[in-house]
């Protein structure tokens, strides 16, 4: 037995020194950043007090201006619905063109660049750009969210297509099917479920983002929200926030139902 212990094998696992170094650097940087940004326990405790005052002013909620509230909510929903519809519509061909397993590189390269451009800015930045370009109002918000949708669904859709089995594609090409038929019969059935999932998720995201684009003047309830903030109208603010929560929960419920239909 003792003899057996002396056998020297090579090490069974390789030590990843670069990985250990990376973790160490990340922890050190985190500590440094906390220190540099003056994040401290004391400030957190003081902040809690302010928060309590702020929350206190929110109740009771003020629903007296409900007509304005409902009108804004409807505009928000309209922005989200229109932006989602066009975003999904455009991201279908873009995503298809970006799929490297079906398309030659001279097609995927521009499509992937376009998707990357759509993803490179936060919606707020897009919203500012479009407000400057087309003026205040819902159109700017719609354009913003269309681009955000293409950036998100386009990329996910391309990835979904890249993961499909190419066996049926091969079979249909061998049968002499035209390209469009190959897409309709061999590709779409494999990705349809996931695509509906992405789309409904993006609709959720658009709904939340459409409450935000109003802050920079691109339509929807965000403008009213921001105004309420600035006027210290905290009871009305609370009413807006509760309405947004209700709206998002409602849409979650609906999209859940839609997904179940397509299972």
């Amino acid at each position: 037995m003792i003899e057996a212990n002396r056998i020297r094998y090579q090490k069974p696992f390789r030590v990843n020194w670069w990985g250990r170094l990376g973790w160490l650097a990340a922890i050190l940087y985190g500590l440094y950043a906390l220190n540099y940004l003056d994040v401290s326990w004391l400030r957190f405790i003081q902040g809690l007090g302010n928060g309590a005052v702020f929350l206190g002013e929110m109740v009771p909620m003020d629903f007296s201006r409900w007509e304005l509230l409902v009108g804004n909510l409807l505009e928000t929903v309209e922005i989200a619905v229109i932006a989602s519809a066009f975003g999904v519509l455009f991201s279908l061909p873009v995503g298809l063109c970006a799929a490297r397993n079906l398309m030659p590189s001279w097609v995927t390269w521009p499509a992937r660049t376009f998707v990357a451009l759509c993803r490179s800015f936060h919606p707020v930045i897009f919203a500012i750009l479009f407000v400057k370009a087309v003026g205040f109002g819902p159109l700017a918000g719609i354009l913003t969210l269309v681009f955000a949708s293409i950036g998100f669904i386009g990329k996910l859709f391309a990835e979904a297509i890249e993961e499909i089995s190419l066996k049926p594609v091969e079979a249909l090409r061998a049968a002499g099917a035209p390209f469009l038929s190959v897409i309709i019969y061999a590709v779409v059935p494999q990705v349809l479920n996931r695509f509906i999932g992405f789309s409904s998720y993006q609709f959720d995201a658009n709904l939340r983002n459409s409450t935000m684009v109003g802050i920079v003047g691109a339509g929807g309830i965000g403008g009213t929200l921001f105004a309420a903030f600035q006027r210290f109208d905290y009871d009305f603010l609370a009413a807006i926030l509760v309405s947004i929560i209700g709206l998002v929960m409602l849409s979650e419920f609906i999209s859940d139902r839609i997904k179940r239909v397509f299972q």
Partner: peptide, 23 residues
């Protein structure tokens, strides 16, 4: 087999006609 798993048997068999039918 290289069938389209999520399509029906009939749809898979008719895939053989895709070369003759418009998309």
């Amino acid at each position: 087999f290289n069938l389209v798993e999520r399509l029906s048997v009939m749809e898979n068999v008719l895939c053989g006609r895709l070369g003759y039918v418009s998309s």
